[in-house]
């Protein structure tokens, strides 16, 4: 009966609760002129669900999306027009990197790194963030992991 299908459970159980949770982030991000509508929140949750499913991951709750909003809302490189789109990209990059680094970097640490590169060397480019800076980190980690003969 698919009663405990994890992905459908995630999608169905938490959606309405998650929308409310995301809308609460407007309290902080609003200070920087960045606001999500209910429709934006819904689309962001659906995009997140699709992303993690595509990356073969599971997350119960939307803590990561909330953390990304909390960290990136103060960046000078995001404006109200591309706020939702940038969040979609950052969420995608986050889960992509979780896989690329085989979960060896914690959530907070990864979001912190993303913010540093995004605000500095990438100057707000999600493309450079993903394909240059974070790709380099993933590559270095992978080499050190291979060198150590590690296998989780």
């Amino acid at each position: 009966m698919g009663f405990l299908d994890i992905h459908s459970s995630m999608a169905n159980i938490s959606k309405h609760l998650s929308i409310d949770e995301l809308l609460k982030t407007n309290e902080d991000s609003g200070k920087y002129g960045l606001l999500l509508s209910s429709q934006d929140a819904l689309e962001l949750i659906e995009a997140r669900n699709l992303t993690i499913q595509n990356y073969g991951r599971v997350e119960l709750g939307i803590d990561v999306v909330k953390s990304i909003i909390s960290e990136f809302c103060s960046t000078p490189y995001i404006n109200a027009q591309d706020y939702t789109m940038t969040l979609h990209e950052l969420v995608d990059i986050f889960y992509y990197m979780k896989n690329e680094t085989a979960d060896r970097i914690g959530d907070s640490e990864l979001i912190g790194l993303m913010k540093i590169y995004f605000n500095n060397s990438c100057r707000g480019s999600t493309d450079l963030l993903k394909n240059r800076e974070l790709a380099l980190i993933a590559s270095i980690l992978k080499k050190s992991w291979d060198y150590a003969g590690g296998d989780d």
Binding site: G56, V58, D103, G106, D107
Partner: peptide, 9 residues
């Protein structure tokens, strides 16, 4: 440290 894991886990 992480709120998400691989599906198989």
């Amino acid at each position: 440290e992480s709120t998400s894991v691989k599906s198989e886990i």
